[in-house]
Write a protein that binds this DNA or RNA. Structure first.
Lengths: 248, 248
DNA sequence: CGTAACTTTGATTAGTATCAAAAATGGTGG
DNA sequence: CCACCATTTTTGATACTAATCAAAGTTACG
């Protein structure tokens, strides 16, 4: 569980700056300034906490490889996953401006992350409007995804909910270059899918079986293929506009 | 339903700049720059659309009085309210940087709003780090509230969900100077409460009755008093930290 | 090869939804 | 000021989705 240090020259800001540039073009100076942040790279084993509810993190964390999820707990201990993150995602950009985390972030798989000092990120954003804009847009898109999840969990039935989540993952993975033709290795257990959709793992299992039987998906172990995207998108009431993936 | 024009000198940016300053102190120049934006004031009747899903608004909209709510619809037409807004809230700050709205915003009551040209707001934020910071924090707090709503709708039972929402409203209203000692006029119908919590209006009615019977709240018409805050917060599994109301 | 984590299946229950309709409320025009 | 109408709230009866409980398979890993 303890982070594994790596030499500074290994620092891989590529996926992170790539995503920022996609959201809003950066000038050469912006890019250089970002790249000269005192970044550290770490590798975390599955289940490691990157952010803890109530704590003030010293760093802003960017995912270079692997997956992570953000979750909150009720007083009774029930868990709700509120987002899933992958290569290129900052998992806690908010924490450069808000003091205390109001949620947890844990790695889902082994993950390489880049740690940037919180205050250095904040100062960079305050000095460089181009960087601030890209980062702000990044957090705005996160926000849009949260809204869609409120809708998903609040107003869709179990099958639609699961199908919607699988569609979202497919599109985001594709955009991150991690899957093609809607075929990917699902980074989550059925229990985690349940926690992301407000269901139980038993029910998720039955829904997956049903999606499988009706030919919408095919599963082999943890690998998943969406057999017919159009029918699946319809089953999941899915329209990816909220992901704001195409350059606005 | 059509907006009602008012003379420019009526423009009331007070509640809006007040909120921004609370989130992050502004310099005198920042404040002046914000106040000299070409703002227009309008009054909308209940049910008016301030933002329409899929459209690109020309303005950023700030609420000066009255209430509004943000919602999304499923393909089947079910509605999920994803946030409720009151005096001092910008309802669509995101739209200064994202092109298309992915949700609707409608007034809940008659509402006075300030309209600021989208591009002017964007340029102001890009030129003035102090303004950008306050606005960014504002959207980050919205984001935090969305996360809590995912948890609320995904993992809490009906009574807890409603109690949680009533607690959130009480605290935010208090902060906006619209209620004291947890007694306020509920701006939403039971059907709207249902759409905000992923329940049906029939069930909301039964839950309210039950909260009333057990002495946690008292209702007179649309007015609501939380009789015992501590017990209510416990019943609603409520901890207001996610609202980030105290200056961070 | 053994063990823990995860997936699958079955039986039963619980919590909310749905359907239907009556009562109360609030706003409007006569 | 009252009568009317639309909206909202309340109540009751029934249906259904997903939860719970329990246990057997399966997979992955050390």
């Amino acid at each position: 569980m303890s982070p594994h240090d790596q030499a500074p020259q290994d620092v891989a800001l590529g996926p992170l700056i790539g995503k920022l540039e996609r959201l809003s073009p950066l000038s050469a100076e912006d890019r250089d300034a970002f790249l000269s942040l005192p970044a550290k790279t770490r590798t975390f084993s599955p289940g490691s906490y990157l952010v803890r509810d109530g704590e003030q993190a010293e760093h802003v964390t960017g995912l270079v490889s692997g997956f992570a999820f953000r979750h909150k707990l009720t007083g009774e201990g029930a868990r709700q996953i509120v987002s899933v993150h992958m290569r290129g995602d900052f998992v806690d950009l908010h924490n450069s401006f808000l003091e205390c985390a109001d949620h947890n972030v844990q790695t889902l798989t082994e993950a390489r992350v880049v740690l940037l000092p919180r205050l250095a990120v904040r100062d960079l954003a305050l000095q460089r409007p181009g960087i601030a804009k890209a980062m702000w847009i990044d957090t705005l898109i996160d926000s849009s995804i949260f809204r869609e999840w409120v809708l998903n969990v609040g107003r869709r039935d179990s099958l639609t909910r699961i199908a919607h989540l699988l569609c979202e993952l497919s599109l985001r993975l594709q955009f991150a270059g991690l899957c093609e033709s809607h075929r990917y290795r699902l980074p989550m257990t059925q229990e985690q899918l349940a926690d992301a959709t407000g269901l139980t793992s038993v029910h998720v299992n039955r829904v997956l079986k049903s999606l499988d039987r009706s030919g919408l998906i095919r599963r082999e172990g943890r690998s998943l293929a969406i057999e017919n995207w159009d029918r699946m998108a319809e089953a999941g009431d899915f329209n990816g506009r909220y992901l704001h993936l195409q350059a606005d």
